[in-house]
């Protein structure tokens, strides 16, 4: 029994790392722009498709395909920020929170259906980075999952370092804490917005492109991950990168262990997606700041 639980926990850990990759970009965007990007799942989906087609049609090697896709989506994010989110900060819209929710939601409808039209409904799969499986005792895990979890850790560490240690990171943090004060100190908050939204989008694309070989590619593939990411950012505290990482691991474990320890075994899997959502509801009710959120953040 203990061996079994350890195996499940290990599997949950890997899933958790994959979740972290998805939620990281959403967290970054929220921490600087104070916006929940409802189109995040679609950026994730586009990242996966771009890397798939670059590899399939232009013969890019997998790593290059993923990198190029990340860069493309970075610029797509920049364009979205300039065209649609800028008005929130120039005072052109009245109800900022609501405007941001609705416009990103509208973008998600638009992009998802555009993808269905352009790419077609067929399920695709990117080529594996490293094919085959690796065994630990009686658990065998596909190499794709191992690669993605390793890369997820790399992305997390890189994000933490860039935010915590570099000059750009300082700017981002300053804007995240107080836009006006940052502007007075000579930091251009608009530039930081651009950077944060672009980088957040790029992280989403990285998630999609890397998960392509594991969870397959189809136009609505972003719908589930984006909801998981919502759970994670709420659980971790909106805008907290540290919180995001820890919450991802908690969610991965909770789903893995929860769905096999569910009292009615026949329905454990049916309720799997509800576990995270229940977290979200409970956290919002009892401690809306989540595990690591400093305060109840809201746009002014």
């Amino acid at each position: 029994m203990t061996e079994y639980l350890i195996l499940q926990a290990l599997n949950g850990l890997i899933i958790g790392l994959i979740y972290a990759l998805m939620a990281l970009g959403l967290t970054l965007i929220f921490s600087v722009l104070k916006i929940v990007n409802f189109a995040h799942g679609e950026l994730y989906m586009l990242g996966a498709y771009f890397s798939y087609y670059l590899a399939k049609m232009f013969g890019f090697p997998p790593v290059l395909a993923v990198l190029s896709s990340i860069i493309i989506v970075f610029f797509l994010g920049v364009v979205i920020e300039v065209l649609f989110l800028r008005p929130v900060y120039t005072g052109a819209v009245e109800r900022k929170d609501e405007y941001a929710i609705l416009i990103t939601f509208g973008l998600s409808i638009f992009l998802q259906n555009l993808a269905l039209f352009v790419f077609g409904p067929w399920t695709r799969r990117s080529p594996s980075f490293v094919s085959g499986t690796t065994s630990f005792c009686s658990l065998s895990i596909s190499n794709d999952r191992l690669v993605v979890s390793a890369l997820a850790i790399v992305f997390m560490v890189a994000t933490l370092i860039i935010i915590g240690r570099t000059f750009i990171g300082k700017g981002l943090r300053a804007v995240s804490q107080d836009r006006e004060a940052a502007a007075i100190a000579g930091i251009n908050p608009f530039k930081m917005n651009l950077l944060a939204f672009g980088a957040g989008s790029a992280l989403a694309a990285a998630g999609g492109a890397l998960i392509g070989p594991i969870f397959l590619i189809f136009p609505t593939m972003g719908a589930m991950p984006v909801i998981k990411s919502f759970v994670i950012i709420v659980l971790g505290g909106m805008g907290s990168i540290k919180g995001c990482i820890i919450a991802s691991l908690i969610l991965g474990e909770a789903e893995s262990l929860g769905s096999v320890l569910f009292p009615d075994l026949t329905r454990g899997l049916a309720y799997k997606n509800a576990i995270g959502l229940l977290f979200l509801v409970v956290v919002l009710l009892l401690k809306p700041t989540g595990l690591f959120g400093e305060k109840h953040v809201r746009m002014k």
């Binding site: 929220f30 916006i35 929940v36 929170d97 609501e98 941001a100 929710i101 909801i227 919502f230 759970v231 709420v234 909106m238 997606n273 509800a274 959502l277 229940l278 979200l280 509801v281 919002l284 809306p288 109840h296 809201r298 746009m299």
Partner: peptide, 15 residues
């Protein structure tokens, strides 16, 4: 308020 309310109600609907 704002995004918190949106997320809460989405979660309720999904559940």
């Amino acid at each position: 308020q704002g995004p918190y309310l949106a997320l809460f109600t989405i979660a309720y609907s999904e559940i």
